[in-house]
Write a protein that binds this DNA or RNA. Structure first.
Lengths: 293, 293
DNA sequence: CTATAGTATTCATTTTTGGAGAATGATAGT
DNA sequence: ACTATCATTCTCCAAAAATGAATACTATAG
């Protein structure tokens, strides 16, 4: 059983057919057929059910698949680990929530790049749920997510403490004013896409204000959201630092239980401590103390 | 990078030379040389330092080795997982302390074999330290060890509670008699080989009796140990159930703090729950209740 | 200083494996 | 019945891996 066989197997399983798998693997149908057959012969049982519209996994195939993917991921990691001589370099993929990327990371990333110019850092923003999944499957080396997170495969360190504030248009000077001037069904809640932790918190806050079923409106970007709030399209919940001295909107302090949220930096537990990631964590520690307050 | 390359690499690393690795792998030197060279070319760095007496790992090699071994172990496990259709069958390797194997396991194993005759169970006895290492590296599927055990990669369930007793020759009727009739340096302590938990407990007990530096004598088998005690060669510490109604020796009750020990059944956390092991655990649960008292 | 035993490497050769491409067969939808 | 879409099978060829023999290196013993 060779790794290439397992990669082939995984592609067939994921794409549901030999033709599609062959296409993705840049080879021909017959070749994939043979590799799958060889694997089935070695294990001694069928891995796929064949039908006219492709192939689907059998029980044995379903049991094998996680091993195949795991081993493929390990082989990629192994090469990087062997090449990692202690000098931070090479690619480093970091994920972050939109809000953290906007206000916390610029200084951190600049510092990191100054200290470790040989690392090719890439940053992608997404929701906490996506980020956790991404770190687990190796898509990200590390990510900034909203706590709390408990997972046996993840290491988490406190990166920043944020205070969430309710953000409204200028015309609402106070929370009681907002409540008085809003219809019974509540204001429109401007939220990030599914999986965002702040979204859940906002729904909880609105619920406590007596607006359990407020209209929701999904936006993908931070700027878009603040713009919509400024135009009094609705309200949203953001870290105070994100809104800063932005005078197109008003911010309203919430009680601590509702407002406190911790941003964690999570990494996967691996056999090897990668230098680039360690360097990043080191930067985070330095920087964190300064701006976490 | 194929699995066979990694297995070859691992063999060279472990055996410290291409000739020895080729021999173990049933192939020729030149082949091993080529595989290693191919791996080094792919990773882009040397994995071994060559010298006249063989090869030793470089830093990169040391970083790669755990991945290679891990992947090899995963590939073996993957085949078993794929073949495991829910019906307990195939090989099952269980480890145990000598004492547990002697008094607790016969009934359990008989029951297990009655219920799951298709499983080829193999039992090996060793010390707790060995057993833990064996379970972690896949040599054992599960093992009976002396608690407590805390390890992120292991699941542990309480299997049996034992009461340790001091075992002496017939002529010592009481502990005070033993103390009075023994020279100041204390009796000879008959112990299992290094790594046995009971051994540490015995040394602790003798120390509390005022014999901190008693002579030690290592034995490999339970019968040998009881025989030596009967011949008044020394004393030892064993679970009460092991000695049973053996009238060639006397047993002396200790205070609970010294006497209590828990036998745990430990298994490795794996991607797949193996049926044979689950069946074993099920038997253990049934049986445990009856005789754990 | 040389002989020897043990080691890794190199190279030419054979064997095995893997991939390409075309033909075949099977199934579902029209 | 016709077509589109699959998977399988077969043959051919090239690439990769294994082999076996020759070479070179380095300690150690005599």
């Amino acid at each position: 059983m060779e790794l290439s066989d397992l990669v082939t197997f995984s592609a067939v399983a994921r794409l549901g057919g030999i033709t599609r798998a062959a296409d993705e693997l840049n080879t021909v149908q017959s070749n994939v057929t043979q590799r799958v057959k060889a694997l089935e012969a070695e294990i001694g049982t069928a891995l796929f059910e064949r039908h006219s519209r492709g192939m689907t996994l059998t029980g044995a195939g379903r049991r094998l698949l996680p091993y195949a993917d795991r081993m493929a991921a390990l082989s990629r990691e192994a090469v990087l680990a062997a090449r990692d001589d202690g000098e931070p370099k090479g690619p480093l993929s970091i994920g972050s929530m939109e809000t953290t990327a906007a206000v916390r990371l610029p200084a951190l990333l600049a510092e990191f790049h100054r200290r470790f110019p040989a690392v090719q850092l890439s940053l992608r923003t997404s929701t906490t749920a996506d980020l956790v999944a991404g770190v687990l499957n190796g898509k990200f080396d590390g990510a900034f997510v909203a706590g709390p997170i408990e997972h046996a495969e993840l290491d988490a360190t406190l990166a920043f403490r944020e205070e969430l504030v309710l953000v409204t248009a200028r015309r609402w000077q106070t929370l009681s004013g907002l409540r008085a001037g809003t219809p019974g069904s509540g204001p429109t809640a401007l939220v990030f896409r599914i999986g965002c932790t702040y979204r859940q918190r906002l729904e909880q806050v609105l619920s406590e204000f007596g607006w359990p079923s407020a209209t929701r409106f999904e936006l993908g970007t931070l700027d878009g959201m603040i713009g919509c709030v400024a135009a009094d399209m609705g309200v949203t919940l953001l870290p105070r630092a994100v809104v800063g001295r932005n005078d197109t909107v008003n911010v309203h302090t919430l009680n601590p239980a509702q407002a406190r949220v911790e941003t964690l930096f999570i990494t996967r537990r691996t056999a090897h401590q990668f230098s680039a990631l360690q360097g990043f964590a080191a930067c985070l520690e330095n920087n964190g103390e300064v701006i976490a307050a």
